[in-house]
Nucleic acid binder design. Structure first.
Length: 415
RNA sequence: GUGGGCGUAGUCGAGGGGUUAAGACGCCUGGUUGUGGCCCAGGAGAUCGAGGGUUCAAUUCCCUCCGCUCACCCCA
């Protein structure tokens, strides 16, 4: 027996109502903020991710699904959305459109990781990108869009964590300060953290291994190293959030695992404790487009994990979602009636009424079938009905039946 | 890559070194004259995750592997 590959899962019919609901909610959140949908290919040239996500990141180091295609091009199943959307922005010359360009996506991502609760090798992200405007009002908008998404989903108790890691130009001074701070404690660092000390010192800040260490409390804060413009931008954003009474928590330990982030970074977490708790994360990436060969172009966005959103919805007891109605079942006895039943099914479907034939079994079994798939109406055809040109219409909830002329079936069903 | 837990029919789940491995749900059939949900009866469905070892004998004990799952790392 074949099984779905490790870390993947079928989204079964019974799962679909919650998925549809989630997709509809996030899409609506994006629309009311003026974002338009974009779909990019599932795979890209590997170099795109190497360049943007960062050679030293875990995503690139150990999580990418990469392979040479038959033409010898190295291909990678996309592990995240921002790089691909930025590529599309450049490729379609969206800088010629009114700025900022507001885009969103809802699609599968791939990361070769050990699966666990809320983490999969193929998973889905809802993400938004606002490209071409550095204004703090756009940061506000993106953050509000993230929180509005939670609200529309009905997810309560979501916490907004916020930080500012400064511009690329501010980074060297901050990194220097970090290394200076940690250098005396380097003997306390584990193997991984010692490597980070050199390769990505920012990540020392969110090391869980060190989180209890006393020297973490007075570690340098990125917000103390902001340049003039970044500082003004940060102050402006915080002022907006305060004015609009958007609750947030500044977390100076919050740094992102992807290299392209600048200035604003944020995450949304549920209140509960637990692993992989971030349901949504993002930030500004003012250097990314330029790094891909475009003119210097600012951008900001976030991505939310659909599976994690749904996990939280389930934990909060959500069940319903968008459930398509069960089809009308057409039961029959006799071969002539069977042919007539097929004809009626065809007519109903042409009028957008969902209909299926009952399986060819005893009348009792056909009714059982109708009942078990939740049909609200059964149309019954037998020799008696055929003779009179009628069909028996049975309401499965009230058990009431009436005969209708076969020519008037549609009208009688619509009331 | 590392560590913990688990692996008996579609699902849940009892059991035990030795002739036919419980039960429940689900599925199928029937309970007469063409009709569901309840009830009753019957039926199908399990090489007890795989391989090896111990033993006269293992699904039950031991080992390895595989899978699932949770956690670490990291991330949505």
């Amino acid at each position: 027996m074949y099984q779905a590959p490790r870390g993947t899962a079928d989204i079964l019919p019974e799962d679909q109502p919650l998925w549809s609901f989630t997709a509809a909610a996030v899409t609506q959140a994006a629309y009311v903020h003026g974002y338009r949908r974009i779909d990019t290919p599932i795979f890209e040239e590997t170099g795109l991710f190497l360049r943007t996500v960062g050679e030293e990141t875990d995503i690139v180091q150990k999580e990418m699904y990469s392979f040479d295609d038959r033409g010898g091009t190295n291909i990678t199943l996309r592990p995240e959305g921002t790089a691909a959307v930025s590529r599309a922005y450049l490729e379609s010359s969206m800088h010629n459109q009114a700025q900022p360009v507001r885009l969103f996506y809802l699609c599968p991502m791939f990361r070769y990781d050990r699966p666990q609760a809320g983490r999969f090798r193929q998973f889905h992200q809802f993400g938004v990108e606002a490209i071409g405007d550095t204004n703090a009002a756009v940061d506000l908008e993106v953050i509000q869009l993230a929180m509005d998404t939670m609200r529309r989903l009905g997810l309560g108790g979501m916490k907004l964590l916020l930080n500012n890691i400064g511009d690329a130009a501010d980074r060297p001074r901050f990194i220097e300060a970090l290394q200076e701070h940690f250098r005396p404690h380097i003997s306390h660092l584990g193997k991984d953290d010692r490597r980070r000390f050199d390769t990505s010192p920012l990540r020392l800040l969110d090391s869980k291994e060190l989180s209890a260490e006393s020297f973490m409390y007075d570690a340098p804060k990125s917000t103390d190293f902001l340049g003039g413009e970044a500082q003004a931008h940060w102050d402006e954003l915080l002022a907006y959030l305060n004015d609009l009474q958007v609750p947030y928590v500044i977390d100076n330990k919050l740094v992102r695992g992807l290299d392209y982030y600048t200035r604003t970074v944020f995450e949304v977490h549920p209140d509960r404790e637990g692993a992989q708790s971030a349901v949504c994360a993002g930030g500004r990436y003012d250097g990314l487009i330029e790094q891909l060969g475009g003119k210097p172009t600012p951008g900001i966005g976030f991505a939310a994990g659909i599976e994690r959103l749904i996990l939280n919805l389930r934990e909060q007891g959500a069940t319903a979602g968008i459930v398509p109605p069960a089809p009308i079942v057409i039961a029959y006895s006799g071969t002539k009636a069977k042919a007539k039943a097929a004809g009626i099914a065809t007519e109903l479907r042409a009028a957008d009424v969902a209909a299926v034939l009952a399986p060819e079994r005893s009348m009792k079994a056909q009714m059982r079938y109708a009942s078990s798939i939740g049909a609200r109406t059964v149309i019954l055809l037998g020799p008696k009905e055929l003779e009179n040109g009628v069909a028996t219409v049975r309401d499965m909830e009230t058990a009431e039946q009436k005969e209708e002329p076969q020519t008037r079936l549609l009208e009688s069903l619509s009331n």
